[in-house]
Simulated scan of single mutants.
Amino acid sequence: MDTNINRVATELNEWKAREERFEKIFSPSILKDPAFLREKLSFYNHVQAKYGQSANDEEKITLRILAGQRMELRDQLYPSLLRKLYHFITRPFEEKRIQQQATQKQQGNLRALGDLMKKHGFDPAPDKLFAHVNQGQKSFTIPISHFVSESEKINYNLSFSKQHDGTYRFDHYQASLQSAKDSRQVVSQVFKTDAKDAIRAEQAQHLLAGRALMREGFDHSGAPKPKWIQLDFTDKDPSGNHKIKQFLHSYGFELEKATERLLQNQHISQENKQNFLEALQRGERQPLTITRGNDSVKLFVEANPQFKTVNIFDEHAKKISIGEALGEKAIKEQIRALAPKQQLSSHRSKKNGVSI
């Protein structure tokens, strides 16, 4: 744990802010109300029990001061000797109960955060989560990064915030796709985590790379109709996020039809074809090896719903047309090259009196 962080002081400051809110709701006299003072004593007892075993020197000092405040408050609320004796006897059991509740609550919160991180495609990182949650900060971030390729690196910053009940929530994450050669070449986007169809880490990577992916969608009657989404790098919202282009089912993009010409006459099984199409739907740039004459050619393909087609790249990542991919351009050039020779041959034959 960071020894510069005083968790006890943090909790006391949060209580102070709570007092200020109640003063505005009611009046300054509420702070002397017996009901409110009992809540305050309960809070002090909770903090004492929760952090009583702390090894942090700053927290130890704060707890010793708090102990005096607790005693004064208890004497004010319960002046009789019998009540003091009762609190003295029951306090150890109460503190143990509070410690157990705090531990169970924290463990449950850590499990929930880990599950949500996993759902969004991130390593739960239990050690990092525990270290941050145990510090009691109002908010914290966990950075994650890895190389996508030799030329690109993806960076994620996962943001968490503390709630009123003391638990933490995984609010959002910022994803940045960065050039490994030039750190200034970077594309970033913030993705929320509370949506039912929230974007997962690998989907964020595909979107930042400029690719489109298929998402769940529904028509006016509520029937499921998938849609395609893609970041609009020419337009941003007020928060600085790129706006999202949507291509609904009614837009008319059919992936299977867009790849039909590319896949026809290729010896590709139905299973491999389905896997290929599903990869494009996920937003991947999918490798595809096709047979062209006697040669095997490796291509890379990605969906392009806006223009109702697919983008095709050669093995050097150069974008090419479908005609170039299928070798049709080369065939046409050969035909054009042969045409003058055929015409010359025909002319010579006629000149020599030979009909062809």
Results as ranks from 00 to 15, higher is better:
7 R>Y: 02
8 V>F: 05
11 E>N: 05
11 E>V: 06
12 L>G: 11
14 E>V: 12
14 E>T: 13
15 W>D: 13
19 E>L: 03
19 E>N: 07
21 R>Q: 09
22 F>H: 11
24 K>F: 06
24 K>C: 12
25 I>L: 15
28 P>K: 00
30 I>E: 02
33 D>H: 11
34 P>C: 04
34 P>R: 02
34 P>V: 01
35 A>D: 13
35 A>Q: 14
36 F>P: 14
36 F>C: 13
38 R>A: 05
39 E>H: 11
41 L>V: 03
41 L>E: 01
45 N>C: 09
45 N>P: 08
46 H>W: 09
46 H>D: 13
46 H>V: 10
49 A>H: 01
51 Y>Q: 02
52 G>D: 07
60 K>S: 12
65 I>H: 12
69 Q>F: 05
72 E>T: 15
74 R>C: 04
76 Q>E: 11
77 L>Q: 00
83 R>V: 07
87 H>Y: 11
90 T>Q: 01
92 P>K: 01
94 E>Q: 12
97 R>Q: 10
102 A>R: 10
102 A>C: 10
105 K>Q: 06
106 Q>W: 02
116 L>A: 04
117 M>Y: 09
123 D>N: 15
126 P>M: 01
126 P>A: 01
129 L>D: 02
133 V>D: 01
134 N>R: 11
142 I>E: 12
150 E>P: 10
152 E>G: 09
161 S>H: 04
162 K>S: 08
168 Y>S: 08
169 R>V: 08
169 R>P: 05
171 D>G: 07
173 Y>H: 03
174 Q>K: 15
176 S>D: 14
178 Q>H: 05
185 Q>L: 14
185 Q>Y: 13
186 V>Y: 00
189 Q>M: 02
193 T>C: 02
198 A>D: 00
201 A>I: 06
206 H>F: 14
207 L>Y: 03
210 G>D: 04
211 R>E: 08
212 A>M: 12
214 M>Y: 06
215 R>L: 12
216 E>D: 10
219 D>Y: 04
224 P>Y: 03
225 K>F: 03
230 Q>V: 08
235 D>K: 12
235 D>Q: 07
237 D>F: 10
239 S>E: 14
245 K>Y: 06
252 G>W: 00
253 F>S: 09
253 F>L: 07
260 E>P: 02
262 L>K: 04
264 Q>N: 10
266 Q>W: 00
267 H>Y: 14
270 Q>F: 15
271 E>M: 11
274 Q>C: 04
275 N>P: 04
275 N>F: 06
275 N>T: 07
277 L>N: 00
278 E>F: 02
279 A>D: 10
282 R>C: 15
284 E>C: 08
285 R>M: 08
290 I>T: 00
297 V>E: 01
307 F>W: 09
309 T>E: 01
319 K>C: 13
322 I>W: 03
323 G>M: 11
323 G>D: 14
329 K>D: 15
330 A>P: 10
331 I>V: 03
331 I>Y: 01
332 K>F: 06
332 K>Y: 07
333 E>Y: 02
336 R>F: 14
340 P>V: 04
341 K>P: 00
350 K>T: 10
353 G>M: 00
355 S>R: 15
355 S>Y: 11
356 I>Q: 13
356 I>A: 15
